[in-house]
Design a protein around this nucleic acid. Structure first.
Lengths: 203, 203
DNA sequence: TGTCATTTGTGACTTTAGTCACATACAGTG
DNA sequence: CACTGTATGTGACTAAAGTCACAAATGACA
């Protein structure tokens, strides 16, 4: 497991030990909301966080997951520029999160190359994930997006039995529940999945 | 105008002066292609570059423009990680571009806080622009996306007379030319624009 | 001025997904 | 077991946009 003490090496870990604070959050907790000012950068130790973009009408779409050992890059960016968040972050699985004050996160850039590399690597990953979302929404049909989402959730939860409702899937995809239900039924007929209440099993 | 010598202050400018190289590119030149390895980071001095995402079937969609004084953050990220580009960058208006070797761009992070800030600020901007693209593609209808694109181009070129074909607009939006033509006709009827061959005028 | 490549206009049709309105099924609780 | 809230299934319809197949207009230039 990722802990506060084995994320990085020596001096940086020392710094984190002195400045960071670990907190627990239950599934469903909103870690970061649209337009919120950011005072600390979260690093996920266990559990997972989902990051979504919401529009004015409350429509939402899943952007990516933050997994153990990763941070929320949007917090970092907006944080060091004293700006507001453009996204919303919700705990998906109960999570332990290491909170680091923004000032420290900014200062460490100059002190610890390892920290800088951590930030940049994460940046690149998020950037590529966002590009994937653009690609999916712009060019892929709902059925393949849905199947991909199911595989993503299966991999995140390390199980083929995904506990989720059609409505939740529809929300993640930014579409209508009926469309999801119909496609799932189709996928069941095609022997790709098995359906039951609150649960979808990948075959 | 932005030049090689007034982008940053003192020492950093000195460094850029010694390491950077200015080159000219004509409109249409491909600066960066999908899967290309990256050896230098471009900073636009004049003109503009458009960054697009293309999928396997050659479908493409406009992500954002790089304007004078800005750089291509994807190059930077992929560059310092010795990775390949996931996007394509094409010169939109004839451009003068300052090329900086990747190693330098990486090293300066430790030497010049101003450089680091430049990179992070740019990152944040691109991230937010990408979020806007996701939002537009996921939730907005083609007519408003088209109108927004026209305004974006008008502002970029500093003119209300946009020299562009319907096909080019369709490509930027990742959609079909016929759809664009029909919507433009509608917008002309609504007195929002005036149409002529290769040219659209905002009213 | 006539020719020709390119651009634009348009009808007809299909596909995909969003909307509305219910019916039905399920699981947990009293 | 009956009740009840939630989840799922489904038909019918609408809307948006993609596709196909041409027609018409435009402007460059021979």
């Amino acid at each position: 497991m990722v802990t506060k003490n084995n994320l990085f090496h020596s001096l940086l870990n020392e710094a984190i030990y002195h400045s960071g604070q670990v907190r627990s959050f239950n599934a469903g907790s909103v870690i970061l909301n649209i337009n919120a000012y950011i005072k600390s950068i979260p690093i996920v130790l266990s559990g997972s966080i989902k990051v979504i973009k919401t529009d004015e009408e409350g429509q939402e779409i899943l952007l990516y997951y933050i997994k153990p050992g990763e941070s929320c890059i949007m917090s970092f960016l907006a944080g060091i520029h004293n700006d507001t968040s453009k996204i919303k972050a919700i705990v998906e699985e109960d999570a332990a999160i290491l909170l680091i004050p923004v000032e420290k996160a900014g200062a460490w850039i100059r002190e610890f190359p390892e920290w800088t590399d951590f930030i940049f690597t994460l940046y690149q990953k998020r950037f590529e994930e966002l590009l994937e979302v653009v690609n999916a929404v712009a060019f892929q049909k709902l059925d393949s997006r849905l199947l991909q989402l199911l595989h993503q959730k299966a991999s995140l939860f390390h199980t083929k039995e995904i506990m989720v409702t059609h409505q939740q899937l529809a929300d993640d995809l930014g579409t209508a529940r009926e469309a999801v239900s119909r496609l799932l039924k189709q996928m069941e007929n095609d022997k790709l999945i098995a359906l039951s209440r609150n649960k979808i099993t990948l075959l």
